[in-house]
Design a protein around this nucleic acid. Structure first.
Lengths: 318, 318
DNA sequence: AATATTTACGTAATTAATTACGTAAATAAA
DNA sequence: TTTATTTACGTAATTAATTACGTAAATATT
């Protein structure tokens, strides 16, 4: 048990289960002391029936939170042991109604004695503990029911993975870079729109289309793969156009677009630009949200060489 | 889960186990989120090896508190999954030394990331709880380790059973009474000593030997059976001799002797006696303790018709 | 040195629970 | 009324852990 204790909260589940198991073994001993021919696992089923809380297999299963199959098997065993007898349901013939036999009633008497003594004993244990275990457990259950552990850890995982993303400059000599820039952008353009002549020109030779003209191309790298692209093309002396913002489908959700956008803005500031401009489409909601988040504002009147462009935005750099 | 909660402390073990199981399922989800091909049950074994806490099958088993068989099987699985490799021990050829493979080391990296995030997450959970579950569980473990539940409940069970014992007057017409009086007393006399003429006389006809002479015979009844005997035989006007104190071997430990003794004393007081006298043997330690507990004091000089008598005691009634 | 006991480990059997799946009855929908 | 869906239950297979037991090596005892 030491192992689990040193691991602390990280192994809380295992620790709880083991401690529970140890307690159940103790219960088995107690039953024997009270001369009850009762298996520990029967306990919940027996009480459900004896206290008239549930009387059919699935009602019992639901009440005690176990599978109906398990209950079905246990009822069978307990019937064999002479504690229960079963009948088919009177109104609903699918049901198996479980009843206490004479022996079952005797067992119930004995069980009540045991429970009373156990109650006292547990109060004794309780008084020796500073903190109330049951209350702590119930509270814990409520807290993880409200928001489960996987849900809670999700944001941390995202942050951790995001930290592994690096932004690199496009290297025209790197075949992987050229291939990724094409692949990622063709992917989203083909998915939502139609590839236009200007697309082909820029994607086939980004060096000529962006870099040689004084612009830049940035890529996002994650786990040795290029998973995001973005480019700036000069428009005037102090303004460039942001485009070809794309993220690999497999890498969505890590906030790679945001990282690329932030990096683009930093580069623009270092280059002494006054303004960034972009065109996009109103159907691309996540993209619109991203641009807004980066600080871009909608531009009313504009004309574009791209037929898909129905929204234009700009960002004035401080 | 509702069922266990309503039962409260009585079903604490089951509740803990179920909650632990739910938490473990959540852990499985978390592993998957972190892209780890890792079964939840491997976790303790993996950590023992990765952290160099234990490296042979039985050391691991001891460290994590599971059976060596289970560890052996898990190590096999994990070896098959490429996380471990095993060698025979160099000095002790019986040992199986477990080592991390390259893949195992990678997994360990990933595991540390996960553990760090989990740590943070659990701290978040903790901050939402008023009571500290882990602390409560550890405290509870300490308390039931100090004195186990079965030990604690024992005294309550004894008291409960003792309350079911009734003291009845010997009924000469009742064959069961006559048989039990003979059986129980012959049993202990034959076990420790030899049956003497006076024994036979009294056991064969208690009515004549005790009751007709003005004495009394009391029996203890438990679960429909006679399990204890005692008798008073007049000596003088205001003094009687207590004898034939016997308890059925199967009913020892319930304090039946004490109940009989107390009842005898009450009867003696009601009859207006001044003194009770008895003879016994120094080898019968439990009996001596009982008489002492009832208030009898040793008498120095005495003579007895029984050859086994080497101790005499008396009790002056107030 | 010979013998007995303990230790380390693995195979096989057992136990306790589950999931997967099939059947029949009840209920809802067309 | 026919058809589809849901519900109640059970059998069979699977999973995860254990106990029981056997073997071989190490250690202790005579």
């Amino acid at each position: 048990m030491d192992f689990y204790r040193t691991l602390g909260y990280v192994a809380l589940g295992s620790y709880m289960r083991r401690l529970g198991e140890v307690s159940l073994q103790a219960s088995a001993q107690v039953y024997q002391m009270y001369g009850m021919e009762m298996e520990v696992k029967w306990f919940p089923v027996f009480l459900s029936v004896a206290n008239n809380e549930a009387e059919t297999v699935s009602k019992i299963a639901e009440y005690i939170g176990q599978s109906h199959v398990g209950v079905s098997l246990m009822v069978k065993e307990m019937t064999k042991a002479g504690l229960f007898e079963t009948q088919k349901g009177a109104t609903d013939k699918r049901e198996t109604v479980v009843l206490l036999t004479e022996k079952g009633h005797e067992m119930n008497q004995r069980m009540h004695e045991l429970l009373a003594d156990l109650q006292d004993t547990m109060n004794e244990v309780r008084s020796e503990c500073e903190t109330d275990v049951l209350r702590a457990l119930m509270e814990y259950e409520q807290v993880i029911l409200k928001k489960s552990l996987p849900e809670r850890i999700k944001s941390r995982l995202k942050q951790r993975e995001r930290n592994k993303v690096t932004i690199v400059s496009f290297d025209p000599a790197n075949a992987t870079h050229r291939e990724a820039f094409k692949r990622i952008n063709y992917e989203w353009i083909e998915r939502y729109f139609k590839v236009e002549p200007l697309d082909m020109e820029s994607l086939e030779d980004p060096e000529k289309f962006y870099i040689k003209k004084g612009g830049i191309v940035l890529l996002a790298e994650y786990q040795g793969q290029i998973v995001g692209t973005s480019a700036l093309k000069p428009m005037t002396d102090d303004c460039m156009e942001l485009s070809k913002m794309g993220v690999d489908t497999n890498a969505k959700g890590l906030g790679i677009g945001e990282l690329l956008g932030q990096s683009i803005i930093e580069h623009a500031q270092q280059m002494g630009l006054k303004r960034l401009y972009l065109e996009t489409n109103s159907r691309l909601l996540p993209a619109l949200n991203l641009y807004q988040k980066l600080g871009f504002k909608t531009v009313k009147d504009f004309s574009s060489p791209y037929s898909r462009a129905d929204v234009a935005m700009e960002l004035w750099l401080g």
